[in-house]
Design a protein around this nucleic acid. Structure first.
Lengths: 229, 229
DNA sequence: TAAAACTTTGCATGACCTGAAATTTTTTGG
DNA sequence: CCAAAAAATTTCAGGTCATGCAAAGTTTTA
């Protein structure tokens, strides 16, 4: 799974520099707070020029988000791989579950990141923002599922993400908006699960919190009973 | 409903300046795009200094968000006014419905704003961000409802937003996170409804789109049937 | 080793945003 | 109506962010 093999020295150094910048940014901001860390501080901690920092990240905040840029495409790919017979919400749950697992594999880094986000509320939008990009792509795939499903297409999903006929995947904005709603709600559930996980210091399994949220979603979010125990 | 009466001339001028800055920002960005409008442009269009702009808005983007700062508190107040017997999701629907009505009352301004947001995706996070603040407050109120409900408290909700006993409203982060989930999902539904409304150029009633989204939420977001007509 | 491709860097520049002090406008009350 | 007080605006200085460009350095390829 480590896709950083079979790379020339140059690309390896690039990955390493990028990771080092992310680590330094996270550490420094956790220590001093976002406002008291300059780009020069971060670059200096890795011993590169501040100009180089901007060769890797468009903004200071982006270095804190981490998460490789391929994440969105990965999710879309995995979603198209789920048989079309599976309901959209369930399909999204399965895909997000995988993401949750990979986050748990980098437990410490993610807990630190989430703590930084809590302590610097101005970053929260960015976290959702990473979602903005992801949300658009996923929505297209979900819309494609509905389009295919409505015409009785089989579960052999050879259609590429967003490469399907425009008439179907495009009905999102102008159609009934169900794909948008399901996708947005699913990502929201993911975000809430992450916050809960962070608030509990990573004690329960993120995957379980995610399942919990989705189970509530699928039953229409009823109020918890007066005596649940 | 126009709460700008019974104000001295000074406060009226402040409101007017603020509104003028919002209008100018929205107009200019709609014309030229976010990147080609400087704070100085906006301030100049209203004939104030750029420093004055920053006395009203912390960032350039904030001028585009608009929406008076009392919105969050208003929502919370209205939510506490809903009888505790009403399920949380339904209560949120009722409250957000009122917000939707008031948005429809400023139809043109909001449609322009949403168009600007679509054309400048970097702003979308900010839209959700305005939500970040709102979401925190609303979550506390929702958690309070559960706390009160669980102990059989009557529907006479005299409790103030966030002023209730900490032991109950505070169980959000460490509890089962239901309040967080319901609130976040409800606001997401609101956002999706707004996007749909904008995409349809304000043709259907925003309120109807909102009801539609909530009705799907309460039934667990099932896939649309193959032949819905 | 030499050329090609790429990365890093320094420099210049403009926009963003803040604090502090000076100036102008508005309110207050005698 | 006129000062004094209060508040808003402006000017100014300064730090940080972010980008474009060209020079210098490094890695790859041949």
């Amino acid at each position: 799974m480590d896709s950083n093999d079979e790379l020339g020295r140059r690309d390896r150094k690039k990955l390493e520099t990028r990771a080092a910048l992310e680590r330094a940014a996270l550490r420094l901001v956790a220590e001093r707070g976002l406002a008291d860390v300059t780009v020069e501080d971060i670059a200096g901690a890795v011993d590169v020029s501040s100009r180089t920092f901007f060769n890797y990240f468009p903004t200071k905040e982006d270095a804190l988000i981490g998460g490789d840029p391929t994440a969105a495409a990965d999710l879309c790919g995995k979603l198209t791989a789920v048989p079309a017979a599976v309901p959209a919400l369930e399909a999204l749950r399965l895909v997000l579950r995988e993401a949750a697992v990979s986050i748990q594999e980098q437990r410490e880094q993610w807990l630190l990141r989430l703590k930084v986000f809590e302590q610097n509320p101005s970053l929260l939008p960015r976290l959702v923002a990473g979602g903005t990009e992801t949300e658009r792509s996923l929505t297209a795939v979900v819309a494609g599922r509905f389009g295919a499903g409505r015409f009785g297409a089989g579960p052999d999903a050879t259609e590429q993400a967003g490469a399907g006929p425009a008439a179907e995947t495009d009905d999102g904005p102008t159609g009934d908006g169900h794909a948008e709603l399901v996708t947005a709600v699913a990502l929201t559930a993911f975000r809430v699960a992450m916050m809960r996980w962070s608030a509990a210091a990573g004690d329960p399994l993120l995957v379980d919190l995610l399942d919990d949220a989705f189970s509530r979603l699928s039953t229409g979010l009823p109020d918890p009973g007066p005596s649940v125990t």
